[in-house]
Amino acid sequence: MSIDWMNFTPWSALAGGALIGLAAALFVAFNGRVAGISGLLGSLLARGGEGRGEKALFLLGLLLAPLLWQLFAALPVIEFQGGWLSLTLAGLLVGLGSRYGAGCTSGHGVCGISRLSPRSWVATGVFMGAGFITVFILRHLLGA
């Protein structure tokens, strides 16, 4: 294995991770709720949910962040090497996994682990392991 030193960006990754952690911590401090994106979106779409305003603003901030970033630097080029079928299948599998796992990567991986939740440790291990296995199979066994 070799490292692509031209695209190795530890400082921006560290800054991004710190900002994600800060946003999650502020959300739980001010709202008393975990900032799990699938849960926020699901409760925002449900009828009669409470706290709809702050949930909508939090999700809107996620959508507007790339536009704000463009004021300072060019956005990275997005590359997706699969077709629409694989993109749709991946989205459905992630949606089903987050529904059955009672949370998503942000809810379990960022907020749950920081709260030392055993359920979140297991869920994060499962979805990370599934991702590692999927990449290994696709790239090394199937050559895709």
Rank of each mutant, 00 (worst) to 15 (best):
F27E: 15
L141C: 05
E79I: 07
V34E: 06
E54G: 02
G131W: 00
M6Q: 15
L40A: 06
M6I: 11
S38V: 10
G17I: 02
R99P: 03
I113V: 13
R139F: 02
L41N: 12
T88K: 04
F132L: 15
G95T: 00
F136N: 06
F127Y: 14
L89V: 15
L92M: 13
G143I: 00
G16A: 03
W11Q: 07
F136P: 03
A24T: 12
L116D: 06
H108N: 12
G53C: 11
F132E: 00
F30D: 01
L67W: 13
G32N: 07
R52K: 13
F80Y: 14
V135K: 06
A90N: 05
V28A: 12
I78L: 15
T134N: 05
R47I: 10
F72D: 11
S43T: 13
G53S: 14
I20V: 15
L141W: 10
V94S: 02
A56T: 12
L64S: 08
L138Q: 05
A73K: 11
G51T: 10
L85Y: 02
G21K: 05
A25P: 05
I20R: 12
A144G: 09
W69N: 07
I133K: 05
R33Q: 13
S38P: 06
Q81Y: 05
R47W: 07
T88F: 10
V110L: 14
L64R: 03
